[in-house]
Amino acid sequence: MSLRLQARKLACERDDRWLFHDLDLDLCAGEIVRVEGPNGSGKTTLLKILSGQLADYRGELFWRGAPMRRVRRDFLANLLYLGHAPGVKAALTALENLAWYQALAGASGDEDDRLAALETVGLAGFEDLPTGQLSAGQQRRVALARLELMPRPLWVLDEPFTAIDREGVAALEARLEAHTRRGGCVLVTTHHALRASSALRSVRLGEGGAGVER
């Protein structure tokens, strides 16, 4: 019954071009899987498929052994996805943003938890400002606070290090490792060089990798 996301013979065709095909992938508890590849090799598309956003693929996805289509809600309840855009509303305060995310997960949430999460990402004192007044890096941090706030085992992070300063990067890297130690799993794309660790594994897209043609 542990965390396990599998892809079998995954292929994605975008307007007559194969981004990748025959891709087999296993994500298990305690792993950081980094998707690598040049620009336009389909990293974001792969992450979107694996996070259940794109239905436009061939092959099979399994969540804990069951076909994804049947267990989609259970999968989503265990997934935390951060995309290119931080998903933070500029007119709302950091606290309000987090409260909405908690509610989307179906929990009313607790103000103390949200404050603690914001403090962890270094935003203490900025809780009640509209996030539109924060810097790009700080807005990212609001989004990253969701990692602290919501106990979801599977993280799918698309370029999470964008706009973050050096200390923030180190802290986030430590956070990812801590997550895997607790049995979580991280799927990540980044141009940033991740610290080598036993948990880290790479999947390469694009020429010579898991799936190429033309």
């Binding site: 965390l3 603690a116 602290e148 430590a174 956070r175 979580g184």
Partner: peptide, 20 residues
Amino acid sequence: MSSAESGPARRDGPLPLAGE
């Protein structure tokens, strides 16, 4: 992100898988 271990006991111990 190392400080503030004061929060709920989320940060250690195995992660539970959420149900429906």
